[in-house]
Design a protein around this nucleic acid. Structure first.
Ligand SMILES: [Zn+2]
Ligand SMILES: [Zn+2]
Ligand SMILES: [Zn+2]
Ligand SMILES: [Zn+2]
Lengths: 148, 148
DNA sequence: TTCGGGATGTTATACTATTACGGCTAAGTA
DNA sequence: TACTTAGCCGTAATAGTATAACATCCCGAA
């Protein structure tokens, strides 16, 4: 049985870094470095200072196992369905969850669109805010029916 | 002569908030709140604490006169060519300049693409990193010619 | 005049991230 | 073996970003 990309990446990291990833992956919303340090049990397994957390996060970012959510100063697990390509992070204002949505098509169009003004494009970061499907109370038909 | 949208927005703000905008607009790269407070002359005109700067910034953001560059914790003037619609912020790693590029088309496509997974989309933030046109040493033809 | 509410001033504190340094260990090599 | 070097990890200190909480002032309405 072939290892998934995710598994083979995780095999490269230390147990403590691995633990950081596990916490991020199992959280339903993004975690900040200090959330990991203080609220989660990372102190219990030997993390004592922010810099240790940031080292682990850096490694996980480089392996593309996690993404940094710039607008929240926090980190989410990568869905691992976009091997190198970019993705869209859709942040729900209501429940706090973030979806990592592969975005090859969008990336291609952005590139096409800005290439003249910005020929040396290297990195693309798209973040959305709004309300996720789960938090949208009901579909319009149902809502109307219920309200009447 | 009709006022431009920018002028009419600026008419609403206090002289000090106006001054904050002027500094941001005249800077060739994005400014952070503490850049404004310490490096620029804002202390000289009565700003004494970060919270005052942040209040001015908040107001300017609400009027869409500036944008926050999430990945830099800094602020740039809006090009004012996209009245309400979204834009792309293209950040040059070399010179630090940020271009504010109107992006109606991209926004439309993103919306179309994510509407199923994220029906309540409200806000869209696209940031690019790379090298701007000005910092791209030469065009390929010229570079080849020069190098030979 | 008196009472609000909004803008502004002021202090303190919370939150996020990096620098700097020191020790340990594994790998290379004379 | 003894020495060197480079990388990883631990620790402490500090830098950088943002907000909370409360005081004060000013102006218009009652
Ligand atoms: Zn991802
Ligand atoms: Zn939600
Ligand atoms: Zn703009
Ligand atoms: Zn440039």
């Amino acid at each position: 049985m072939p290892e998934t990309p995710k598994e083979s990446k995780l095999a490269e990291v230390s147990p403590k870094t691995r633990k950081v990833f596990d916490f991020i992956e199992s959280s339903k919303s993004p975690l900040g470095a200090y959330d990991l340090l203080n609220d989660q049990n990372l102190r219990a397994i030997g993390f004592k200072a922010p810099t240790q957390i940031y080292r682990a996060l850096k490694q996980l970012l480089e392996l593309q196992l996690i993404h940094r959510v710039e607008s929240l100063n926090a980190f989410v697990a990568c869905c691992t369905e976009h091997e190198k390509g970019p993705s869209i992070l859709a942040i729900c204002d209501s429940c706090g969850q973030v979806q990592d949505i592969p975005a090859e098509d969008i990336a291609a169009q952005v590139t096409k669109e800005v290439v003249k003004k910005f020929p040396g494009l290297k990195e693309l970061n798209i973040e959305l805010k709004g309300v996720c499907e789960e938090c949208t109370p009901e579909s319009p038909e149902v809502r109307t029916a219920t309200a009447s």
